[in-house]
């Protein structure tokens, strides 16, 4: 692990006091897509740094290109964390982000995605975008792992630059897969509920 990644993950862990709980799920290096609620800039880095080292080196957070491809500092962080940048605005059939992600992870890597598509300001879990569905349609054998990150929106809410070091908790739930013949709406609803269930499981 490089110095930037080490420093960032150390600071993020210190700030968030993150406690990780594996509920009906064990850390594994098999290919997975971790999907989580998104309320703070720190989400990806905290979740990433909370994973065991062996898993971490194989896991890449997915982030927005319009934000992370600007300026020297952000580009440096993007490189250090091996962020996978997705263009949110120009989604065409030819430049499909799903295809890009599938190409990037190959047969080894895992992904961290935030299916709400952006940070929610209120901390409530929004509707999921359909990317998760198309990904599992392409690669149905990938394990989809729900993650609920508690209190992160209080540590560093949207629009703030100064953090408040509260204690947060990351719950990682049981893997799920796309069922045969399951519709997009049903599947996304099931995935969203999987995240919400982790919230109530305190």
């Amino acid at each position: 692990m490089n110095l930037t990644a080490a420093t960032l993950s150390f600071c993020a862990k210190l700030l968030c006091g993150a406690k990780i709980r594996w509920i009906n799920c064990q850390p594994d290096i098999c290919q997975r897509i971790y999907f989580a609620n998104h309320t703070s800039h720190l989400d990806a880095i905290v979740l990433w740094s909370s994973l065991p080292k062996e898993v971490r080196v194989l896991t890449r957070p997915v982030a927005a290109k319009d934000y992370w491809d600007k300026g020297v500092v952000r580009r440096h962080i993007t490189k250090a964390l091996k962020l996978l940048l997705i263009d949110r605005h120009e989604i065409t059939a030819r430049r499909s982000p799903i295809q890009l992600m599938m190409n990037e992870i190959g047969q080894t890597d895992s992904l961290i995605v935030f299916p709400e598509g952006g940070r929610s300001a209120s901390g409530e879990l929004g509707e999921f975008k359909s990317g998760l569905y198309y990904m599992s349609k392409k690669r149905p054998e990938l394990e989809l792992v729900p993650v609920y990150m508690d209190n992160m929106n209080r540590v560093l809410p949207r629009g703030e630059i100064l953090p408040v070091p509260l204690l947060s908790c990351i719950s990682i739930g049981a893997p799920m897969w796309l069922e045969a013949g399951e519709s997009k709406v049903d599947f996304l609803e099931r995935a969203r509920n999987a995240v919400l269930n982790l919230k109530s499981e305190d």
Binding site: A121, N151, R154, P157, E160, L162, V164, P165, L166, L167
Partner: peptide, 27 residues
């Protein structure tokens, strides 16, 4: 103290608008 305050504020419901006040309390 820092850790105790951390636990206290985590437990206390605060509003989004309290964020910066809390920052000064901590730092």
């Amino acid at each position: 103290s820092f850790w105790a305050l951390r636990e206290y504020v985590t437990m206390t419901p605060t509003r989004r608008a309290d964020h910066r006040t809390l920052f000064w309390a901590f730092f």
